[in-house]
Design a protein around this nucleic acid. Structure first.
Lengths: 235, 235
DNA sequence: CGGATGGTTCGGCCGGCATCGAAGCGTCCG
DNA sequence: CGGACGCTTCGATGCCGGCCGAACCATCCG
């Protein structure tokens, strides 16, 4: 009789987002914490691209997903860990049947995927690992907009980077750039470019000659471990 | 295309259960851990009884709810704490707006609701509290079917109950009986009847004269505290 | 036994929504 | 500049499912 309970509409609306098989597939795919393109998700879920677009619009409007445009690509991720937890609870709450292997088979990484440059900064697994290591060392803040800490500026200066010059430039110091193989962010901006430049000058990295591929030299491996605690496997 | 992800159908099916406003209202109502009748839920959610029936069938078939028939009533509860947790996560995951007060205003308890008999055993708040106290004391096991423990049998004997006679009787010793005011179970069966009988003979309880109401005497209060650690407020 | 009450079944109605393909737009690259 | 590619918008289609009321069944009570 008219008296409708408090939070029921919101709860139903939230649940409805996951009540569609295609949207559920999308969210499960995104559980790997990586960013997927719209087209990939469409293929993965087995629907037309237009259909996927509508689902992505819906999910981003609801705050379940966040997207990031990069050129003609639309990368999309789960909005935050809370949402990921919700998806996990939902997916885990199906008692019958063994837990599905949500992790896709690790993609075979080409040398290019391992380490390369993106415009003028480091990308690939190396770029992402570098960003992680910088953050772990307290040199890089990654909440919301990325920023180089004071400690980070000092560390850069120690490498021979002209930090003051960098600060005066129009270009932002630190930018998050979505990595197309790792699907996670690596460091772009003035600091990213300066790092690549200094790493090269110091002989820590060297171009492989193919495309924009690079490799980490022996000195580079030692230096990364010493400076940032980053262990980079031989390859 | 065609490659549809693993657990997506199950997840969507699960989410679909909560994706309806009426079903969401029902689940939220049941978050208070009590058992509601089908008619109550229909009124609460503002739908026809037939509609509520369909929703309840759906939810019980899916294992979200369990029901218990009692005469012409159909009592329904959340199936288990896991489900309750899921509902809570869903309801909590609506960032905007303050958390709704899910606890209904405590119903005004009549004297009858406090303590009465149900057929031949104790019911009302007293009956439920007694069952809780018996369980806490290790005299009553309440997993799945209810059962009197060995310790419980000894305790009954100490009260003057002929336990051997009870065991030989066709009637089950311990039964869970759904309490219509508390919406939780109290103790029925041979042990329940024997307890009421002995409590009365010992002067721990006495009939009030109205309906099937009873009251706990002064000695009863002391005895319940001494024997079971059950503190029964004056009233 | 008969009326009152709680619950269920059935048929039919209707709205919402997931889907697709075609056309259009923006970006990238040679 | 022009073609290829990724994505989005739009209109049309069809189905799924939530809703109700009427008829029916079961239980309780006097």
């Amino acid at each position: 009789m008219s008296r409708r309970v408090d939070a029921a509409p919101e709860m139903a609306a939230l649940a409805r987002l996951f009540a569609d098989e295609t949207r559920a597939a999308i969210c499960l795919a995104l559980l790997d914490r990586r960013a997927w393109t719209a087209g990939e998700l469409a293929r993965y879920a087995g629907v037309a691209r237009s259909t996927a677009t509508e689902h992505l619009n819906l999910l981003t409007a609801a705050g379940v997903l966040v997207d990031e445009r990069q050129g003609r690509h639309r990368y999309v991720r789960l909005a935050d860990p809370q949402v990921a937890a919700l998806v996990e609870v939902l997916s885990a709450h199906t008692p019958p049947g063994p837990r599905p292997a949500t992790l896709r088979a690790a993609t075979a990484r080409s040398a290019l995927a391992r380490a390369r440059t993106c415009y003028d900064h480091l990308a690939g697994a190396l770029g992402v690992a570098l960003a992680d290591a910088l953050a772990d060392s307290g040199f890089l803040h990654r909440d919301r907009g990325w920023a180089v800490s004071n400690g980070g500026a000092g560390w850069l200066a120690g490498l021979g980077v002209d930090v003051e010059h960098l600060r005066r430039a129009r270009r932002p110091m630190a930018l998050a750039c979505l990595d197309w193989t790792e699907r996670r962010h690596h460091l772009a901006g003035g600091a990213g470019a300066a790092l690549r430049s200094r790493f090269e000058a110091l002989g820590w990295i060297a171009p492989t000659g193919i495309h924009r591929g690079i490799r980490v030299t022996g000195e580079g491996r030692d230096a990364l471990a010493r400076e940032l605690g980053l262990t980079w496997p031989d390859g």
